[in-house]
């Protein structure tokens, strides 16, 4: 069974002195994922809003 490889949480965050590189890599990765999920959701909201406005114009 895999074991926790670090003595403490602080050591985990320090990543054996490579904290900067490891955590900024994972940070960039997380940002990319967030962008690719949030952008379509916002875009969908915009599209639906525009569609509603168009439907109201047409029915008016």
């Amino acid at each position: 069974m895999p074991e926790f490889q670090f003595q403490s949480l602080a050591e985990f965050f320090a990543m054996g002195g490579h904290a900067k590189y490891v955590w900024s890599s994972y940070g960039v990765f997380a940002l990319m994922i967030a962008y690719n999920l949030i952008q379509p959701v916002l875009a969908k909201r915009r599209i639906i809003k525009a569609q509603k406005a168009r439907m109201q114009r047409n029915s008016a």
């Binding site: 895999p2 074991e3 926790f4 490889q5 670090f6 985990f12 990543m15 054996g16 002195g17 490579h18 590189y21 490891v22 890599s25 994972y26």
Partner: peptide
Amino acid sequence: LAFTPPDYQMGENYRI
């Protein structure tokens, strides 16, 4: 990130 042993050459950096 936490449960695999570090690489003997590159240390923790290989987790990237």
